[in-house]
Nucleic acid binder design. Structure first.
Ligand SMILES: [Mn+2]
Ligand SMILES: [Mn+2]
Ligand SMILES: [Mn+2]
Ligand SMILES: [Mn+2]
Lengths: 219, 219
DNA sequence: CTTTTAGTTTAGGTAAAACTAAAAATTATT
DNA sequence: AATAATTTTTAGTTTTACCTAAACTAAAAG
């Protein structure tokens, strides 16, 4: 098990996010990393020398098996740390991403597994995203967008997209959290907004922009 | 509050360890860091441009007030993480140092303070070393070497030096932990070894080499 | 008072990781 | 098919952080 630089790990993570094990364009990768295309060309050259990616010039970059495995192990660390920060230290779910970006680079198998064990071997992080398992298996990606449920259904919120801090602020203001259940009272045929009723009796209206970032299952 | 590279932080920590706010020689610093003298000369130049150290060529390097403050904040993080790893995740006290070396570089005031709060705002780490407080104050350095206690005294182990993994193995084999109490039964005038009696009735003999790395108070 | 030695700095070089500017290849449009 | 637009690569710089080899300083030994 070789040791990797933080930069390398960030490239691997970005590649996995953008394409999984499919090829990704230089430009998309540059945009995601926040570097110029020329920097990416060089970085990718270094990665291919370590057999983490294959490169076809002018065509695209693709993770190797080793690359995918590394990407999953970094994602596992990221999401376990996010879980720790929220569940154990009491951070808000809007605060933990930048911290997990740092903590995911700490290198120690044993630390990750002890952390997972301490947290009760969770399968999903505070945003409902699946936590890759030690063997590389991915738990299911939960839920469907709120708009997919018809009037009259009872639903449970199970996942949210990371759509920026204003989105999280809005969720907090509306008191919406993972695990909450609601009755779908109406879906607007005018603007696709959704009207929910909480068990407390309160009614909330969600704009389409909010809905597409909130995922739920029937409850 | 500027942001510092990992290398910079390691130099600051080394300087604080070697001399506190007193001057340190280039060679000692090089030995501690594990780099060559020439590399240290350059690194120290970068640090002085950030006003973290003052340098007198051929004479020595000295932390500024800012430098001392930074050193303490890093040490605080290091020792809080060590406490977390031992108390919360169940690591052995011989395992946590290299992990804390990585975790101490994570940048977030709030994370450190939440961690401290979660751990009960500890004043000493798993080795008994003082944890610098947020205001910069240092809790007392506890204990005296075992050899300092006369026969007949009852003592409590409060601190151990980091004298390598074999030392920790030996402590574990002898079941010696922080907080344990013993009666001093004898001190050899031949080889300065110490004979202790545990509350369980078991007797253990500690060589001089062991004793000088174990600190205790009267109990 | 010279010489040796230990310690330090300078000079010059490598590698990672970013940049800008210019050239080359690919893709899209007339 | 020819040209224009876009994307990607190449070439040359910069900064950080390390290295070796050579020169320099200061103190100790002869
Ligand atoms: Mn995240
Ligand atoms: Mn997440
Ligand atoms: Mn330590
Ligand atoms: Mn310690």
């Amino acid at each position: 098990m070789k040791t990797h630089t933080e930069s390398e790990e960030n490239y691997i993570k970005a590649l996995y996010h953008l394409g999984g094990d499919n090829p990704v364009s230089n430009g998309d990768l540059a945009h995601r990393i926040g570097a110029k295309g020329s920097s990416v060309t060089q970085a990718v050259k270094r990665l291919s020398q370590k057999n983490l990616v294959t490169v076809v010039p002018y065509k695209g970059v693709q993770l190797t098996e080793d690359g995918v495995q590394l990407a999953k192990s970094i994602l596992r660390k990221h999401r376990l740390w996010e879980t720790f920060l929220v569940d154990t230290l009491g951070f808000g779910w809007d605060q933990v991403h930048p911290l997990a970006e740092q903590l995911e680079h700490v290198q120690s198998e044993e630390l990750v597994e002890r952390l997972s064990n301490f947290l009760g071997a969770p399968k999903h992080d505070p945003h409902g995203d699946p936590i890759p398992q030690p063997n590389g298996q991915m738990p299911p990606v939960l839920g469907e967008p709120l708009g997919a449920f018809a009037k009259g259904h009872t639903i449970k919120v199970v996942r949210v997209e990371d759509a920026g801090s204003e989105f999280f602020d809005q969720l907090d203001a509306m008191n919406i959290n993972l695990g909450n259940t609601y009755d779908v009272e109406a879906i607007s045929s005018f603007d696709a907004s959704v009207q929910l009723k909480a068990p407390s009796g309160h009614t909330i209206w969600l704009s389409h922009s909010m809905c597409v970032n909130i995922y739920a299952v029937s409850a």
